[in-house]
Design a protein around this nucleic acid. Structure first.
Lengths: 237, 237
DNA sequence: CATCCTAAGTGTTTGAAATACACTTTTATC
DNA sequence: GATAAAAGTGTATTTCAAACACTTAGGATG
């Protein structure tokens, strides 16, 4: 029997960013000059890399995300492992891997991480060795390298499943937010319209969404009440 | 930077078995004579092993489960990856690993798989190199090797979450079952009592649970109607 | 300062689903 | 034919979900 003497393990981060313009995913571009010889288009991919030999999975995800995008201190949760033996062996993928890895032919199993940030609070910057970092609307993501489209689909599903059950919506909003913003977030992620009055009825039952003594400013309509999230209240529901 | 040139990947299977006596987990015993020198008690653990270099994760879980327990063709789904760098480095664990692995000091990341069987239909047999296979009541599981208690806890949680949403209860029941058996299964897994009449009202809405022209036999009380599960109906709900 | 524009904010009615609850039926045994 | 044991069944009540339209506050404009 041949064991996995040289199997590699990576993490890939699906970082969702949200603001009033919708839900975005953070993608990095493979550097153009990588393809100088191969005559290929550079592809986009999820930020991910091999984990270090003495590093936990969660720590690896945090580190990799930071190294590639400078994004730090965000919600990050494992959601699925991808281990198809051929997930990394497309022609384009191999060409690229040869340019950046010492053992490009090795099989790589990856653990997908779901990350959430408010676009108000975080501004990613590409690492020197990454070809660029972009927020792309989730509905406008084209073909990605490797099996990253599958991983993205898995992350979207995980996000939808967890949005209601796990109190994670606030991770995508600024610290102070209006109920209309919260509702728009739900509508975007769940892909369906919600009734304003019923939505607000439900939110009022959630003790971790607390009204502030503060209103929206500088809008040319009735200013909305601001709310914030109180993590201490989560357990008591 | 030191990459994971020799990181190992395994799968561990949490196979739940159910019958009228409750919910069991399949454990294997590390072989006693392994400890001849070390003077240690043999520990129980989940069936798991390293994956092969060209093998998908799901395939690995299937193979490992079969090799260790002869159990075959069951529901098996990935639920979480465990990658703490020290998850395998307890003293007892190292002693045992030295006796069965060529590179016992290597870090191992494992992917946990949740498996379901009806104890009516499957009878596990230990592999020659496993020290024994036992069904243990989930409430009576003692300390396991490595981080297998954590993995078991994760599997129980995953099972509870999926029981209602994913139509998997029938995986734990014989092909023909009574509604009382189905209800007892729910009560066991969810750890709460359910109302008989309300439970049956809900089941009647599920078109994939179909009544048979057949009744229980040989019981000294009113014989129950038998039901079976029709997988074709699942989509239409 | 009156008007207009824009999004915020607010209650009630209706139907559906969840809950609580107790007696009758069928078979095997003695 | 009496007994034991679990199967099977219906209704009333409460809770939750869904549908639905107008009034309010503030900024901008003339």
């Amino acid at each position: 029997m041949q064991f996995n003497e040289s199997l590699h393990l990576s993490v890939d981060c699906v970082l969702f960013g949200y603001d009033d313009n919708g839900l975005k995913v953070l993608l990095i571009n493979q550097k153009e000059d990588t393809y100088a010889h191969g005559n290929q288009q550079p592809m986009s991919q999820l930020p991910g890399d091999l984990i270090l030999i003495e590093e936990g999975l969660d720590a690896a995800a945090e580190r990799v995300l930071f190294e590639l995008t400078q994004v730090n201190g965000v919600y990050l949760k494992q959601f699925h492992a991808y281990g198809d033996p051929n997930r990394v062996s497309g022609h384009k993928d191999r060409t690229w891997l040869r340019s950046v890895r010492s053992m490009p032919e090795q099989r790589v199993v990856t653990v997908g991480y779901l990350g959430l940030v408010s676009l108000h609070d975080h501004d990613p910057r590409p690492a020197s060795f990454a070809g660029g970092v972009r927020w792309v609307d989730v509905d406008e993501v084209g073909p990605l390298a490797f099996d990253h489209n599958d991983i993205l689909d898995g992350a979207i599903e995980a996000l939808q499943n967890q949005l209601e059950s796990h109190h994670i919506s606030f991770e995508l909003l600024p610290k102070k937010f209006t109920l209309s913003q919260l509702q728009a977030l739900y509508e975007t992620v769940l892909h369906k319209k919600l009734d304003k009055r019923n939505f607000r009825k439900n939110i009022k039952k959630m003790s971790h969404v607390v009204p502030l003594d503060e209103k929206q400013q500088g809008v040319m309509h009735k200013p909305a009440q601001l709310f914030s999230f109180n993590p201490d209240q989560i357990e008591h529901e």
